[in-house]
């Protein structure tokens, strides 16, 4: 962040001092994006929070009335919301934890920088680019107990219930988590691999010269250096998992019963299928608050860590 050299212009056209002109220019460059995001993202977000205090249904808009915190009270006594909240957290932490573990294993396998590994990494990234909707369809079909390539044999050999992995209350959420793991582990591997490649080689060599065993080296040297550089990626992945929609909507639609309902699925159902805008907005606002809390925790954890590492 060095200061720009300041050309002193003497032409009357540029009566404004350079510094001010430069600042104005940069402000004009960033303004359109800020205005756009405020209008198209923040404004609706605020509008949604306002809606959450109203009894507002698109089916009978004439009878809209201010109800204070009633939607929030209804929300906390709604058993589906409670299930959805638990499911959302199980899904978020379960999926991201597994993705981290598998991703780390995969990154370590691909650490050596050669042609074979680079090609495999590109191919591995294919699931990341596949429409999440199609990902849902793939597993819906594969896991079908009637004709699916996996589901049929799983049901036949008694590994899954007769309704298949996605059709049984006991296994549906875990199956959804595994689908998410299939989709996002490669991304996690890529991020961790980038982290591994940026590790200072001299420290790794020093550890080896000092006679640290591979497992020790990994635990004491690699992991502590790797975590800070990949922490933001982990948090972002977690926030993405928190609002997952497509794969659940397609593969179970929240069912069976409410076994795979998440806050996201439930609020979309309430708002855009049953048109209970007030209630759906209350759920969405709770989600926004929870994401905010995650962000604050992230800032509190990251700032001290960054300060420590300089």
């Amino acid at each position: 962040m060095t200061d720009l050299a300041l050309p002193i212009s003497r032409s009357p056209r540029n009566a404004m001092p350079y510094r001010t002109r430069r600042r104005l220019f940069l402000l004009l460059m960033v303004a359109p994006a800020i205005v756009y995001v405020v209008l198209i993202a923040l404004w609706p977000l605020a509008q949604g929070i306002v809606y959450s205090f109203f009894d507002y249904s698109l089916l009978r808009p004439a009878s809209t009335s201010y109800v204070g915190l009633d939607n929030y009270r209804a929300l906390f006594s709604d058993t589906t919301v409670r299930t959805a909240l638990v499911n959302t957290f199980l899904f978020t932490f379960g999926a991201v934890a597994l993705e981290f573990l598998f991703g780390l294993g995969l990154a370590l396998l691909l650490w050596r920088d050669d042609r074979f590994n680079r090609i495999c990494l590109s191919l591995l990234l294919i699931p990341v680019t596949v429409t999440p909707l199609v990902v849902g369809l793939i597993f819906k079909a594969m896991l079908s107990p009637d004709y699916g390539a996996i589901g049929y044999f799983a049901a036949e050999w008694g590994l899954s219930g007769e309704h298949g992995f996605l059709g049984e209350t006991s296994s549906a959420l875990m199956t959804i988590i595994m689908i998410d793991v299939w989709e996002w582990t490669p991304l996690m591997a890529l991020i961790l691999l980038a982290g591994l490649k940026s590790l200072p080689t001299d420290i790794l060599e020093a550890a080896q010269v000092d006679g640290a065993r591979p497992l020790q080296r990994f635990r004491i040297v690699v992991l502590p250096l790797l975590l800070p550089s990949t922490f933001l990626a982990l948090v972002l992945r977690m926030m993405d998992a928190f609002r997952v929609f497509d794969i659940i909507f397609v593969s179970t639609g929240g069912g069976p019963g409410d076994a795979t309902d998440t806050l996201m699925i439930y609020s979309v159902k309430q708002g855009l299928q049953f048109f209970n805008v007030g209630f759906a907005s209350a759920i969405a606002s709770v989600m926004t608050i929870l994401i905010g809390i995650m962000a604050v925790i992230f800032i509190l954890v990251v700032k001290p860590a960054e300060a420590r590492n300089g």
Partner: peptide
């Protein structure tokens, strides 16, 4: 702030945006 915008749950903006 821009990074944070991306983490907002889409349903929170979608419903009001739909009405708008």
């Amino acid at each position: 702030f821009f990074l944070a915008i991306r983490t907002v749950p889409p349903v929170a903006t979608l419903i009001p945006f739909y009405i708008l």
